Computed example of a mutant assay.
Amino acid sequence: MAAHEPEIKSSVSFIPCFLFVELVLMAGTVILSYHFEYTDTFPVHSQGFFCYDSTLSKPYPGPESSSRVPPRLLYPLITVLPVLTILLGEVSTALINPRWGNREKIISCGDCCFFNPLLRRIVRILGLFSFGLFCTVIFAGAVQTVTGNQAPHFLSVCRPNYTALGCKSHMQYIASPYACSGDPDLINEARKAFPSKPAALGAYAAVYTTMYVTLVLKVKGSRLVKPSLCLAMLSPAWLLCLLRVAEYRNHWRDVLAGTIVGGAIAVFLVTCVLNNFGSSSSEEGDLIEKEQEGVIEDEIPLPTACEKIAVVKVR
């Protein structure tokens, strides 16, 4: 029927805004996150330490590649799983609900350029997810650079000469930037512990995907499917935080701060930018659909006692 066809909205600024604003911002975040992650453009603050500090004397756990959750496993998990979940959710929603297009409009940018509602929604959700990942890397890297908080294994890679430094008590503070004699690269990495970047990325991906499942996906006939999916997506992030602490790569406060950072960025983007994935409009569409199917009947209010008395008096 023509009444159920998606509306066409004409927009002249859609393509220019996408090319010259959104793509430029995305490119800027990618470049900035690359500099924080793989270059020495922003030097890390050299924070001092106390002599014989037991909280910084844990054994060196080895490079990140030897971790139980190495980067080659972490980065695919925080990117592939959310993307697959969102793609399956959007496609299944469009196929199962025939009136899905009623709440989305086709964007027309001339006589030849028409943007499909499903494709536009997928690009919007996944594009913002990617933008949030890079923002999480930038924010965590900026805080690490400014604070320079040491990892639990800092003194194991620093290898300070306590005799030459004149350490006589545990309360003596060493502020010299030349106190370490170990590998400079390992020392530099050991100074970037707060907040934990893997914990922040894991929390961001888990919270973003969990909010998508909670707000968008609808499973009829079962109340345990969605909570089970949400717990299954949150559990790897929790396990990652525990492993970071157990392997002496981060303090508990580092992973807690990283979790808060990643979760806060995900909640902000979903609620303030995506408007909860448009769940309010979808709920209105479901109500309209139920009304059209006759599931929701119009309620006729019964006359009150005062109205009955007024009718008797008029008669």
Rank of each mutant, 00 (worst) to 15 (best):
G182L: 09
I125Q: 01
K313L: 15
I265Y: 00
A237T: 09
I107T: 11
S235M: 15
I300H: 08
I265D: 00
P301A: 11
P63A: 13
A206L: 04
N116H: 15
A142M: 14
Y173R: 14
S13G: 07
C113R: 05
G110N: 01
G294E: 06
A246H: 14
R315L: 14
A206V: 08
M233K: 01
I174P: 04
T147C: 15
P236V: 03
I15D: 00
C180F: 03
R159V: 12
K192V: 01
R244T: 03
S176L: 10
A142D: 04
F14A: 01
L201M: 14
V216E: 04
C113V: 11
P152H: 05
V295N: 02
T93R: 08
I288Y: 06
V311K: 14
P6G: 03
A151I: 00
V295G: 00
A190H: 06
L25F: 15
F139L: 15
E7L: 12
L243I: 12
A27H: 09
V157L: 06
C158D: 03
L269C: 01
P6Q: 04
P198T: 02
T163V: 10
Y34S: 05
L165V: 06
C230T: 07
V21D: 00
T41C: 10
P63N: 12
R315W: 10
V80R: 02
T259E: 03
N275M: 07
E291M: 15
E247M: 07
F139G: 01
F277T: 01
G221Q: 09
R68W: 13
S92N: 05
N161H: 15
S66G: 10
V30F: 12
V123S: 09
P198A: 02
Q292K: 07
V255M: 03
M26S: 13
A237D: 03
A175F: 10
L23C: 13
R244Q: 13
T271Y: 07
Y34I: 05
G101I: 01
D286A: 14
T271V: 11
C272P: 00
F134L: 10
F115M: 04
S196H: 00
M233S: 05
L87W: 09
Y162E: 13
C17P: 00
V91F: 13
M26R: 03
R223T: 14
L128A: 04
V273M: 07
P117T: 04
P61Q: 08
L231W: 07
V270Y: 01
L165T: 06
G89P: 02
L287I: 13
I187P: 05
H170C: 09
V12E: 10
W252Y: 08
R249N: 04
K9W: 05
E64G: 15
D185Y: 11
S13M: 13
Y60P: 03
A257G: 14
A199I: 06
C241W: 06
A246T: 06
D111E: 07
S281M: 09
R315Y: 11
L73W: 08
L165Y: 08
T136I: 04
V12I: 14
E289F: 11
L215V: 01
